[in-house]
Design a protein around this nucleic acid. Structure first.
Length: 103
DNA sequence: AGTAAGGCGGGCA
DNA sequence: GTGCCCGCCTTAC
């Protein structure tokens, strides 16, 4: 199993209505410093349907990017989050700490 | 407080 | 094998 597959698996494991961060995923992969690699893996997301990359945000609760830092896609990200009872305001997750899922 | 730059892990040409 | 790209993180200014 390659690194990105692990990233995707973890991303899929995020419960509905919850989110996680790049560094949390990196830690779960035993590579706390691999946060960038996580972003890279999600960027190469081969299966956006089963891999809810919109549930992965930055460590400060801001959304970060989505499909290549495309502002239009980030809008979709926001809406997707709100569809799971995750509120987004000013490009940040509301109640971020409570919604944060730890592996 | 906002901005800049360095470092890091891993994928890809 | 090398170099460059990143949806980042952290530190320094």
């Amino acid at each position: 199993m390659s690194f990105n597959e692990k990233v995707w698996e973890l991303t899929k494991k995020i419960p509905k209505g919850k989110i996680s961060t790049y560094s949390e995923i990196a830690k779960a992969l035993k590579n706390p410093k691999a946060c960038r690699a996580v972003g890279n893996a999600l960027r190469n997301n081969p299966d956006p349907i089963n891999t809810p990359c919109f549930k992965v945000v930055k460590s400060d609760g801001s959304l970060g990017g989505y499909c290549g830092r495309d502002p239009k896609k980030i809008k979709i990200k926001k809406r997707k989050l709100s569809e799971e009872n995750i509120k987004v305001r000013a490009n940040k997750i509301v109640n971020f700490k409570q919604l944060l899922h730890r592996f």
